[in-house]
Amino acid sequence: MTLTRRKLSAALAAGIASTWGAGVAWAQSYPQKAVKLVVGSPPGGPSDFLARVLADSIGPGMGQNFIVENKPGASGMPAADQVVKGVADGHQLLISGPASIVVMPHMFSKITYDPMRELVPVTMLGAGAFVLVVHPSVKANNVKDLIALAKANPNQLTYGSGGNGSSGHLCTEYFNGLAGVKMTHIPYKGDGQAVVDLLAGQIQVMFTAPNVAMAHVKSGKLRLLAVTTKERVSSMPDIATVHEMGVKDFEYLGWIIVFAPAATPPAVVDQLSSAWLKVKNTPAIAQKLNELAMAAPERYSARPALQDFVKSEYVRLGKLIKDNNIKSEV
């Protein structure tokens, strides 16, 4: 069964009351009013969806409404700036993917905030695999074949992405570096345009989100080679990871994390983190995260581990951007 947000909300209403009744005692001082969840993308995308799941799931137990505010544009930087400059009391939080936190600070010279100094990660709502797909004309049935082909033909294979600094661009360049190959980048205005040319054979390779590619894989128009998580994806258990196919330690996640201003009281941050950890494994939420292939790795559940992960992503992608001279289109 596929859960829409409306069905999910109904399931949450039916099931989470018992979760909150299991002895969770919230400090009376927080929240004192509605909590705003600022999302740097339009309604309907993964960040927006998970923000609304968070709002529906923890609001009742914390005794206040959690309200989603969409502030799209400029790779999420205006949304991050709004939260950074807001009151650090936990009543305004940022829901963000990598772009505004660990990518644009290395690509955009006029950025108005320092994400490593002015924001702290609260909890990871989800983290998904990208898929590696090729046009059927490419003589590669697995990652090892693709690497051998690319090594024999440097810069002859072309790959598409949703633009300079996009997840698909950075993921592929990270793959190129670890695999020791060179492929030529063709940027597009979004993954949708790129996959059209991939289907036509104008480009040969693409790392993209499962929802972009899987219908074409099932119809035989694209060949699926691997997923980018270190562990296999539960909804695609037969598909190998890039890591297990010989590119040691390769992992590239499409993550969505809740951030708070750095000066937010630690007790408030801990409350918010505990609230999500308490509800994320309820059947309705767990089912939806698995359907979306967005279940976050358990190794990032503890806040110290999550903080280390965000810092390591900042360093890793900063080096990748610098080494490949990747420039912003913003």
Rank of each mutant, 00 (worst) to 15 (best):
L178M: 15
S161F: 04
A127N: 08
V143E: 08
G168P: 07
E173G: 02
V133T: 14
G160D: 03
L178P: 05
L157S: 03
G168I: 00
L170R: 07
L132G: 00
M124V: 00
G180N: 04
A152I: 02
V138T: 14
T158C: 03
K182R: 13
K182P: 00
G162M: 09
S166Q: 03
H135T: 06
A127H: 02
L125A: 08
G160K: 08
M124E: 13
G160Q: 01
N153T: 11
S161P: 06
L149P: 09
A152P: 01
H169D: 15
L170T: 12
E173M: 13
V143Q: 06
H169I: 02
N141F: 04
G128T: 05
I147H: 11
Y174D: 11
G177F: 00
K139N: 14
V143I: 11
V138Y: 04
E173W: 11
T158L: 04
N141K: 15
V133E: 07
V143D: 05
N155R: 13
K139F: 02
G162I: 01
V138L: 10
G162L: 05
D145N: 15
A140V: 06
A152W: 01
V181G: 09
A127P: 05
G180S: 06
N141T: 12
L157C: 04
L146N: 07
L178V: 01
L125K: 08
L170F: 08
S161K: 05
F175H: 10
G126E: 00
S161N: 13
S167H: 08
K182Q: 14
T172P: 07
S166F: 15
V131W: 10
H135E: 01
A140H: 09
K182A: 13
Y159P: 10
A179M: 03
